[in-house]
Design a protein around this nucleic acid. Structure first.
Lengths: 314, 314
DNA sequence: GAGTCTCCATTAATTTAAATTATTCAAATA
DNA sequence: TATTTGAATAATTTAAATTAATGGAGACTC
């Protein structure tokens, strides 16, 4: 790899002299002294083994070699300016990309609203949302493919230490019934009532399903006795199934806001049982945090966080 | 004019690290120490207020900002390389332009051969020949529009001091007669014989004409008594006129080599009279001398110079 | 899982380079 | 010829880069 025979400063000086037609004026323009300019040009001429300026008369005139160099000089300096601008844009969030990871639920119901708000504030940052399993999302954050993510499940142990995990919000998994279900007008059910219901659930691989199962089990219920009508792999499908009267389900409240308002499904409380899960923000502390990521974490997330979230403080 | 937030060296280092995936390897590649690389990148990051590399693991990975900068970096460095190559080409005469000035005579009969030889040796240098009066050529050399010139006449006094004038060759202005002229078979004429001839001459403005007039006058001839059949402004026209038997003329020998060989015109000597003029090389010592000009002066001109020329020495 | 190796960051000391001031030189203007 | 303006030069000061040595964190070895 060859050494560079000139510096950007020298090119800048060359350009200034060419524009001003004088070493002195160029020096004034660049806020340096005239000898500094003279020396830099001398160095440049020495290194390139060419004469750049005719210093004959009152004005400094370009030689042929000087004109040739000036052409490249202009192009190079323009590229530099452009690079600076691009970097500035990136810093001021007028560009760049933010990659957000999320689980199915948050990715479907929460993230779109967050991203909408973010894009409203920073329309020039392109945002990419990657909806994957908790596990895969965790790994993506670990190796830098994702800037930050919201997950609802439990990370594998090794990732737990590697990543920064901040409790972000509490997501209630509400028991919902078809609106014409006999139990749907009751304010509160007993745990035992659950055994009378037919459930439409997520498939058993899903993090949300696992969370629900664990909570029900922990509260003393025998989940084997619960009747599962069908297992679907999409929350939307489950919602439709419930609305169609096919059964009950535990669904994240964020996913059924519209349906609850429209009255097409009913949410019922269960005595002594709250099915809730912690949504957690995960980031990779050992990796570079982009401005966009920083801003998203500081300004956007708190607006959607529940009251208990540590993010509320910032 | 804003200060530049980075240097070419920094960009070079950035590129090397990105290519090698390691600070150390980049340092080795660039023949500098590792801390030098680290510091340069730190400065770059500080100045641009961005993080360029993820130094998390074993490898140095580019951040988004880093990738953005690298793109510009490559473009800028490419331009720099191109500029270097262009300058090198210019230095090694693989490019550039040589502007040569000449009077009518040398421009028509001498220069084309010289330029041919030059172009044979340096086919990538474009050569421009400007045929003008001695006066105008002198001024063009003075203000740098012409790199070097061969003139046959006398420069205005003010230019004489400003420019470097080197005697280059002696150009004989031979007396030529139509081949069927009664005097054309004589070996030598007497000065008085000139009064018997009809002359076809250049117009009285021309330098060559003035030179001839002066020499004849100095040798004791009364130029008023010489019969001038016609005045033409082109040597070629005069040659044709002589060949057609319209009269005699003093013509530069270089311009009539072919005609003498073919015997279509005759050259005759005059006793006690040599009509000769000095062809002079003029250059501008206060101006930059291009490589092409240097080479032309040193390598090409001597090959066509007469024995007495100082250029023969070099 | 302890040790070693590799790689990046940091610090201090030296060296090198660059900018500045002051001065000289040259050319153009009056 | 005297005066002014611009560029080159010399010497000092100042800043910056390099070197060398140290420290720390991850990765491979046994």
């Amino acid at each position: 790899m060859p050494e560079l025979p000139f510096t950007l400063d020298q090119l800048r000086i060359l350009k200034a002299i060419a524009a001003q037609g004088s070493f002195k004026k160029a020096a004034d323009l660049l806020y340096v002294t005239q000898p500094a300019v003279s020396l830099q040009i001398q160095n440049l001429e020495k290194q390139l083994e060419i004469t750049i300026f005719d210093r004959g008369g009152r004005k400094a005139l370009l030689t042929e070699a000087g004109r040739l160099l000036l052409e490249y000089c202009e192009r190079i300096l323009n590229q530099c300016d452009e690079a600076c601008k691009a970097i500035e844009d990136l810093n001021s969030l007028k560009g760049g990309t933010l990659v957000i990871g999320a689980s199915q639920t948050t990715g479907t119901y929460l993230m779109p609203r967050m991203i909408g708000l973010f894009r409203q504030k920073y329309p020039d940052v392109s945002v990419q949302l990657q909806v994957h399993s908790t596990r895969r999302t965790g790994w993506s954050v670990a190796n830098g493919q994702i800037d930050l993510a919201i997950i609802g499940g439990q990370l594998p142990g090794d990732l737990e230490n590697l990543l920064q995990v901040i409790p972000y919000a509490t997501d209630e998994l509400a028991l919902v019934l078809p609106s014409k279900h006999p139990l749907s007008n009751k304010k509160e059910l007993l745990k035992e009532d659950l055994y009378k219901l037919n459930f439409v659930t997520l498939d058993s691989q899903s993090t949300t399903r696992k969370v629900v199962d664990k909570l029900l089990k922990d509260s003393g219920l025998d989940i084997q006795r619960l009747k599962i009508e069908m297992e679907l792999n999409s929350l939307e499908a489950i919602k439709n199934a419930v609305q169609s009267g096919l059964g009950a389900s535990f669904l994240p409240v964020v996913s059924i806001e519209r349906e609850l308002a429209a009255g097409t499904i009913h949410k019922v409380f269960i005595a002594d049982l709250e099915v809730k899960r912690e949504l957690k923000l995960i980031t990779n502390p050992s990796r570079y945090t982009s401005r966009a990521s920083e801003v998203f974490k500081k300004n956007i997330l708190p607006q959607f966080a529940s009251l208990e979230s540590p993010l509320r403080e910032s």
